[in-house]
Simulated scan of single mutants.
Amino acid sequence: MIALLVMGGGLWAGYLVATTFFFRPPAPPPELQGVPEVRGQTLGLATVALADLGLEVGRVDSIRHPRIPEGIVIGQSPLPGRTSLPAASVRVTVSLGPEVRPVPDVTRLPGSRAAALLEESGFVVAVDTVESAAPAGRVIRIEPVPGTPVAIPGDVRVAVSLGPPTVPMPALAGLNQTAAVNLLSALGLVVSEIDYRYSLLNVDLVFGQYPGPLTRVEQGSEVRLIIGQRVRAPIGTFFRRRPARSPEQGVRVYPFRELLEEESG
């Protein structure tokens, strides 16, 4: 009996020695920590938020973003809500902000080419067409002005000329010279030449014009007028513009009837 007690005591002592010095049980696992949301914060604030939970910032990547300002965290790994071991690192991605480019000067290019060049440079282009004294198709205005730094993709407006405004030529027949010139001036047209011709029905009145009535012309265009001049030669004698031969006298004449037919026709 005593031998059994001694043997049992020896086994118990051996177990205690083995478990205490040679085969210690594993330590309990550490408590897992939830990863917080740090996106939308600056890198400094994200570092503080992670440190408060026993985590730290690991690798930091940087990329450009068209809308988020420079220095703001836009990505993280592990994602928010995941669990991580204490003192584990969290990888973050920080925005470098949008790329900024100066607006190029494309005023010397045709409107279509200017818009294409701006789009190729990363800008969002809106084209307006306006009446202007500049030739049709020419770029006359850029907003923002060339050289202004703009974040990509930024908005740029281009104004392209439709050419000078056009007006329909008025019918000037029957007006005197002063009235005709004043009317043309009010429409932005210029009288470039006045041709005085003998007339029986339209003395001191307009009876011809170029361009003709209702023709659409650009403002600033030149107009030629034909105004009647009193016939000073006696009726029945010659008129040099349309000569005819008198079989009786053998001279060139312009019969009164033909002059009337020309003006009335």
Rank of each mutant, 00 (worst) to 15 (best):
G250K: 04
P153M: 04
V181H: 08
L260F: 08
V130A: 08
R24P: 08
P30D: 09
I72V: 13
V103L: 11
G220C: 06
Q209D: 11
Q33F: 00
P78G: 04
I142G: 00
R64Q: 09
P98T: 02
P243T: 11
G44H: 07
Q177D: 15
P168H: 06
R240E: 14
T19P: 04
S192A: 15
Y196M: 13
V223E: 09
I68N: 03
A13P: 10
G236Q: 04
G40L: 05
P135R: 07
L109H: 02
P149Q: 08
L225D: 08
R232K: 12
R224Y: 08
S264L: 15
L118I: 00
R138V: 02
P234N: 09
V94M: 01
S95Q: 07
L79H: 13
G34P: 15
V203I: 15
G44K: 12
A134E: 09
A233E: 15
G228C: 07
L201V: 12
Q33R: 15
G236I: 04
A179L: 09
V167E: 07
V127N: 11
V17H: 01
R138Y: 03
G220W: 06
I235G: 09
N202K: 06
R101I: 07
A180K: 00
P146T: 00
L16R: 12
A116Y: 03
L260I: 06
L16P: 02
F21H: 12
H65S: 12
P213A: 15
A151M: 11
R39H: 06
P234E: 14
G250C: 08
V6F: 13
R157I: 05
V156R: 06
R240A: 12
G97V: 00
S264I: 06
Q41F: 15
W12I: 15
I72A: 01
V125R: 10
S77F: 11
A133I: 03
V253H: 03
G9S: 11
I142F: 01
G75L: 05
V253S: 07
L183V: 08
G212Y: 10
V251C: 03
E120L: 09
E131D: 13
R242C: 04
G81Y: 12
N202H: 14
T107Q: 10
T47F: 02
P26W: 02
A186H: 14
S132Q: 00
V145F: 00
V127T: 11
D52S: 12
L260S: 12
P86M: 02
S199M: 02
G265Y: 13
G71W: 04
S199D: 04
